[in-house]
Every structure is written in structure tokens, then in C-alpha cells.
Computed example of a mutant assay.
Amino acid sequence: MTNSSLFCPVYRDLEPFTYFFYLVFLIGIIGSCFAAWAFTQKTTQHRCVSIYLINLLTADFLLTLAIPVKIAVDLGVAPWKLKIFHCQVTACLIYINMYLSIIFLAFVSLDRCLQLTHSCKIYRIQEPGFARMISTVVWLMVLLIMVPNMVIPIQDIAEKPSVGCMEFKKEFGRNWHLLTNFLCVAIFLNFSAIILISNFLVIRQLYRNRDNANYSSVKTALVNILLVTTSYIVCFVPYHAVRIPYTLSQTEVISDCPTRISLFKAKEATLLLAVSNLCFDPILYYHLSKAFRLKVTETFASSKKTKVQKEKSGSENEV
């Protein structure tokens, strides 16, 4: 970094964001743990959409490991070694979750599209074996892009109250970080196209079937599409609108101090929206996975039945 970065207080005043990150973590960990329990209780063979959702859930658990460390660093209570660990590891976990979420949401949208359009020419894409294979490929691709950011050697710098992760990186690390950001934006654009095209085709198909006697199932499918699309737009589009200019400010292509501070705050705010997918995902599991929905229904029905039996037993004892 140039000397100008020493006089520009970019990485300060992050405490307000930490309260929202804490709320996201609390809601997300409860929802993710319940989802994991529900998925593991079902012994039936999973369909493609369930396989993609289980991979999405696995990525969410990586995010739950990263958020507490980010909160500690942003509050300024983390020791120096934890700040280094955050820059090398947990910050990367946040982005691993983000792009795995984008990709698997795209696969969920594509799978729903194929189910409704009944495309026989590419039926093999809807086989569970293909879903497992492509999920493995996705994990390897994202890790291949992100893991070098964790293992590329960093430089020693003097301890100070506020520090940006880019300041730890040597020249090769900064170049890889820049390449990673452009690759991730490319992933976002390509898989966004898959989501939008798939959802457009589904909506068109549903419009053609609007006079169908089984309109309730058509309406349910439309709600599911709107849920996926809305959560995707809210979580990921604002962040990627800020990502490229913020990256340029990190490398000081944009060197104006007020602009750099504004871009950093915008990045933190949109990153908060991006990690909030941790809260939305359990809702998607319920609406998109029959196995998950049945387990939730069984659990609450059993709980209600037990409560009624206890109340009935208590009334009989009183008599």
C-alpha cells in the first residue's frame, strides 16, 4: 500500500454493523441447525433439488464459523493474531459461502425449470448422480479460486488499531486477490443469467397453464420462484454493484480518501445483505424441499399432539 493509506481512516467505525451481523448469525445458526437435523432425519433418496439445498446448507455452516470472528475484529476486541487469521481464513470463508450460494441457487432454479417444462432432451441433468457430481465440481472450482488467498504468504506489518486485509498482502497476493474478484464477478454474472432465464421460462410456462384445474399447485410454484428470485436479488445484487469500485479503491486505483471511505462503508453494508442469505435459506428449504417440509410438519404436529395429551392427562388428574 502507498503511504496515503496511512492517513486515510478507512477501516473505522464498524461497530454499528456488528449488531446486525450478530443478529444474522443468531437467526442463521438456529435455522441451519434445524435444517441439518431435518435433512438427516429423512432416510428417503434425495432428489436433485434436495442435493443442491444440502450443499447450500453445508456452505451456510462455513459462514457461521466466520461471522463470530468478523464481529470480534470489527468491534476492535480481537488480538492481532486473530485479525491476521480473519484476513487469511475467515474472510475467505464468507466469500466461499457467497459464491457457493449463488451457484447452488442457480442450480435450484434450473432444476425447477426442467421439472415444469418437462424437457426430456436433458433429462440426465435431473438425475441425483449428476447433481452429486456437479456439486463436487462446484466445490472444487470455488475452493481453487479462494484457497490461494488463504495460503499465499503475507508480510509482517506493525500492529495498529485499524488495519485492512489488503495491507497484509504482498504484491503477488494483491494480484491474486484482484484476479479472484474479477473471476467471482464473472461467476455472479453467469449464474445470475441462469437464474433469470430459468425463472422467465417457468413464469411463461405457468402463464400458459393459468386456466389449469390444478391452479393451486401452479400458484405454489410461482411463490417458490418469487422467493428464490427475491432473496437472490436482495442478498447479492447490491454487493456486486459495489464490488468492482471497492476493489479498485483497495489497490488505490481510486485514491481519493472520502471516496475510499464511502466505498468501504457501502461494501460493508452490502456484505451484510449478502450474508443475510443465512436467514433466508431455511425458508427456501421449507418451500423447495418436500423431505424438509414433511419433517417440519411432522415435528410440529407431534409437538402439538404431545401438548394436547399432557393437557388432557392433567384435566383427568384434576377430576
Rank of each mutant, 00 (worst) to 15 (best):
L65I: 10
G173M: 09
F300D: 01
I67D: 02
T40P: 01
H240M: 10
I102N: 07
E316V: 14
N209A: 04
I187F: 03
L294A: 08
L110G: 01
T40N: 14
T251V: 15
M98C: 15
I30G: 14
L57P: 04
I96M: 12
I67Y: 01
I30N: 13
S313L: 12
K170D: 07
P68K: 01
S216Y: 14
P16M: 01
A38Q: 06
E159N: 05
E268D: 10
L14R: 08
T90H: 04
S255D: 13
K267L: 02
A72C: 08
N3R: 07
G129R: 14
E15H: 04
Y19C: 03
Y246P: 03
A193V: 04
S276D: 11
P153H: 01
F292S: 04
A291E: 03
A213T: 13
F236D: 04
G314P: 05
F292E: 02
L288E: 06
I96S: 10
P128F: 05
Y239S: 07
P238F: 10
Y215W: 15
L222C: 11
K219T: 15
A131S: 12
H177M: 13
F172T: 08
I71Q: 13
L6Q: 13
L26A: 14
N175F: 08
F280L: 12
Y239D: 10
A241P: 04
F292Y: 09
V223F: 11
T2V: 15
F107V: 00
V218P: 03
V308T: 05
L116Q: 06
L179H: 14
F39D: 02
V10A: 12
L62R: 00
F39R: 09
H287S: 07
K160G: 02
D211Q: 14
D111P: 05
F188A: 06
I152F: 12
Y285C: 09
F236N: 06
Q41Y: 05
P258V: 01
S303A: 14
M150K: 00
S313M: 11
F172P: 03
E298M: 05
I195G: 09
T259W: 06
L144D: 01
N317Y: 05
N199I: 06
T220L: 10
A91C: 02
F191S: 02
V319P: 04
T251L: 15
Q126G: 04
I29Q: 10
V237K: 00
V89N: 01
F182N: 10
C8P: 06
N214T: 13
A291N: 06
D60H: 07
I225C: 14
F20V: 11
N277P: 08
W139D: 11
R204K: 12
